[in-house]
Design a protein around this nucleic acid. Sequence first.
DNA 1: TCTGGGGTCCTAGGACCC
DNA 2: TCTGGGGTCCTAGGACCC
Length: 426
Amino acid sequence: MTALVDCNSFYASCERVFRPDLKDRPVVVLSNNDGCIVAMSREAKELNLPRGAPLFKVQKLLDQAGAVVFSSNYTLYGDLSRRIMEILESFTPHLEVYSIDEAFLELRGSLEELEDQACTIRDRVFSWVGIPVSVGIGETKTLAKIASHRAKKNAGNICIPTPSQWPDILKETDVKEIWGIGRQYGQKLHSKEIHTAADLILQEDSWVKKNMTLVGLKTLWELRGKPSFTLEETPPPKQGIMSSRSFSFPVTEMEDIMEAGADYASRAAEKLRAQNSACRVIHCSVMTNPFRESDRQYARGMTEQLSFPLSYTPSIVSVVHRQLEKLYRPGFRYKKIAVFLSEIEPAREGQLDLFYKKDSRNDAVMEAVDRINNRYGRHSLHCMPLRPGSRWQMKRERLSPLYTTSWKDLPVVRCGAPLLKQRGPG
DNA sequence: TCTGGGGTCCTAGGACCC
DNA sequence: TCTGGGGTCCTAGGACCC
């Protein structure tokens, strides 16, 4: 059977782990640049804010409700996620880490045994990491997803339907809630009077294939109980690597654009090397803020095909700089630039250019740079002077401490007075 | 004033080959 | 005047996911 373990309101729950005072209070977490709401605790969801609402539009409502607002702290969420996945690994040899807050597990046993395992998973994650999770179990990934949705609404956060319960559950599941069916397909299905999962499984394969492509057909089979999406235990290397950020302020100067370009290109190159890859194509783009309709708008990208694969940061940065020099037009208020690396291949297998003599010392330099930056922080060594507090850098005004990854943010536990007396000073 | 940042897969259609 | 039948590769666009 396939189990989906899904963290409840993951980012909001992470913020609560070291802040027990936030229990029962609405907690929301913002996107980069403190822009939109990307996560809400249960109490915050009850305020009925529109999904993805920009903070400034709902600030008043949040204040009235006494909500606590955080900037995204991906370092914290990533570290807690890693700890959770480590726990889940101990329950099965077959685990797919599907996203930062979800994993599929292959489990075996009778329904009672499965329920036992699900409870142990839930309790262990909560007591060892402090994050509440839901567990849904079904014969396929798609069914496990449906079960986990229902688990979120159960008191115990666990849902393992028996074969006789499934037909009713499918009748109660709107097609739009099915994994793999989004807004477009959802609307299309509704317009054809296909409203629930139970309606969908009665459709002809050929009709579904024609209207929803092969992916839709596999979803249909999964709903009928035939596994069609396999567990991906080792994530395949990325085929494209994107690094892009909005600026906290409108940027007008080329100097700032170049600085951001070097930073984003370095970040992309780091990700590339982390999976032992090199890229053959570099794409770079700039854009103004489309929400400011009074501003003159400008958006353009540029693609360069390289004659040999690259992963060396200084080379990638210089390509990006060359592109940005051509893309930049004075007189615009820029909001965002992006660097995208594609045609990615394993680093050492690439077909070389006849005239390119690879300098193997570059690899050694990058390995050392990556090690140093991993250990001492991202910008310890970088390619171009980065002025601390540059105007364009991301806004994160409500960032919580790095409780688990930074010595200076480590929480301090104070023992009670009686204990100190017993033990003496110090 | 303030509106995120990543990814995947599939298909149709055009250009080209013999 | 009549104008086939097979392929491949690439790209743009559209759907989806977190």
